[in-house]
Every structure is written in C-alpha cells, then in structure tokens.
C-alpha cells in the first residue's frame, strides 16, 4: 500500500468513524464507508488540506477507490 493510500484510509476512517484496519486500497469509498455526497464533499476538503493539493471536482468523476483517488492526489503533488 502506498503512503498516500495509507493516509487516505486514515483520514476517511477518522472522518467517518470507521476502523482503518478494515479498509483496503481497492475498496469502494462509498459502499464501504456508506457515505453520501455531502460527506464525500467533507472528505475532499480533508484530503486537500492533508496533502496540500487542489482536486478539481471534474477529475474526481468516476473515482471510487482509495487507490484511484491516491493516484489523482500524487499527480498534483
């Protein structure tokens, strides 16, 4: 698991009260965490703060896994 994925999982687990040990890089963020679009927006802000990046919404269309989101983050660091 990359550092980025590990940090993402930690952030998501903290925000949504999940057990990080039960989250995997290829997990579907929405299904595994059971979050709605409002919560997803909160997570995007957490991610941007943590990694000091800006993620244009249109680049996140279709992104469902921690691994795919990590790729987008790494491309902007």
């Amino acid at each position: 698991m990359s550092d980025t994925v590990g940090t993402l999982i930690r952030l998501a687990a903290k925000r949504f009260g999940a057990d990080p040990a039960k989250l995997r890089a290829e997990d579907d963020l929405f299904e595994n965490l059971g979050i709605d679009s409002f919560q997803a927006v909160e997570l995007i802000s957490d991610v941007e703060d943590e990694f000091d990046v800006e993620l244009p919404d249109y680049e996140l269309q279709g992104i469902k896994t921690f691994a795919a989101l990590a790729q987008k983050i790494d491309a902007r660091r």
């Binding site: 927006v41 995007i44 802000s45 941007e48 703060d49 800006e54 244009p56 919404d57 249109y58």
Partner: peptide
C-alpha cells in the same frame, strides 16, 4: 467556467 468547487482555505 469550470464549475469546480474550492475549499475554505483556498
């Protein structure tokens, strides 16, 4: 023109 969202810090 992009319709993207920006966070509080930005």
């Amino acid at each position: 023109l992009s319709g993207r969202s920006i966070n509080a810090k930005r």
